[in-house]
């Protein structure tokens, strides 16, 4: 098999496995899996910025929330239908990322991390400030009848799973196309050596801004889909914890690998779920996982696999 065929075969196999999963796993896990796929889209977005372009952001919760609240508020208060609201959520994520990027990308390293953290904090506080509309930390639910897309009832388990899978598949294929394109290679070049890349005639600022905007598109879409599929919009998704979770999922699965975000989100979800049965020290699990990863497995699960055996893994 040539490299390209092998890569596409692997990723299509993963999608087929996900499509067949509800037939074999109990409904409880199918619902979990739907949630994991939506959150994995968020993580894939984070991976485009952090994994491929080297932008360590601590503000991605803002982009997730931008999509979630744009969609949620338009449906709940604006009377929009699900389709246009989903599109608006996706664009809100990309738009906020673009504006934040214009400012924050003037900084690098630790300063970039703090600036994105601060913008996200301002966003979180803004949600609380407009508590009449957003109901603050408590959040709000979306009416059942508003949650239909193209005539499909998103509330039932089967359609919800299919919708989550369709979204995830689109995200995965988009990501694969991106990283195998020339643009994707330039993003990696910016991560590896920004000054060299500039002296090869590429504008690193533009490359980073593109990566962050695409990243925001993914995050916004994930937020919007979460609101529609699970019917809940809440400020907890805008807290720094969700920015950290995105970082954790990507680190765990393997930063700069296409399937890493899914693997990381899946493993972490069940790790916390499993630990939750033994102890309620979930914060400890998250904290310890971060420290162990950064100390001993900085390339994550798939990154390690790529280094050891599968050099062709994108």
């Amino acid at each position: 098999m040539t490299g390209g065929v092998r890569v596409w075969a692997l990723h299509l196999a993963v999608l087929v496995a996900l499509a067949l999963a509800p037939l074999v796993v109990p409904p409880y896990h199918a619902t979990n899996l739907a949630r994991i796929m939506v959150l994995a889209v968020f993580a894939m977005g984070y991976n485009i910025a952090f994994g491929y372009t080297g932008l360590l952001s601590l503000g991605h919760a803002l982009l997730l929330a931008a999509g979630m609240y744009a969609t949620g508020l338009l449906v709940a208060h604006g009377g929009w239908t699900a389709g246009p609201a989903l599109l608006a959520g996706a664009l809100a994520g990309a738009g906020v990322a673009f504006v934040v990027g214009l400012l924050a990308l003037r900084t690098t390293g630790a300063a970039f991390m703090i600036v994105t953290l601060m913008f996200a904090q301002a966003g979180y506080l803004t949600i609380l400030y407009f508590g009449d509309l957003t109901r603050g930390d408590e959040g709000f639910t979306l009416a059942r009848e508003a949650r239909t897309l193209f005539g499909l009832d998103l509330v039932t388990d089967a359609t919800r799973y299919s919708a989550a899978l369709a979204l995830f598949a689109a995200g995965l294929i988009g990501c694969l196309l991106l990283v195998r394109s020339r643009t994707g290679r330039v993003l990696v070049a910016v991560r590896e050596n920004s000054e060299r890349t500039r002296m090869l005639g590429y504008d690193p600022f533009r490359a980073r801004l593109l990566a962050l905007t695409l990243s925001g598109l993914y995050a916004g879409t994930a937020g919007a889909a979460y609101a529609l599929l699970f019917g809940y919009v809440g400020a907890s998704f805008a807290t720094v914890q969700y920015s950290v979770l995105a970082l954790l999922w990507v680190l765990l699965g393997g930063a700069g690998t296409v399937l890493g975000p899914l693997v990381g989100t899946l493993v972490m979800f069940y790790l916390v779920d499993f630990a939750g049965n033994l102890t309620d020290a979930t914060l400890f699990v998250v904290g310890a996982a971060l420290i162990l990863l950064i100390l001993f497995a900085r390339t994550g699960l798939l990154g390690t696999l790529r280094a050891r055996a599968l050099a062709w893994l994108p």
Binding site: A189, E192, N193, R196, R198, M199, Y202, D203
Partner: peptide
């Protein structure tokens, strides 16, 4: 004109201290 635009016009620069992509 910024540096990257000059490169596109045809001005190439090789670094005094070697600057490559060591991991690629």
């Amino acid at each position: 004109l910024p540096a990257h635009a000059r490169v596109r016009l045809g001005i190439a620069y090789t670094f005094q201290v070697t600057s490559i992509y060591p991991r690629l």
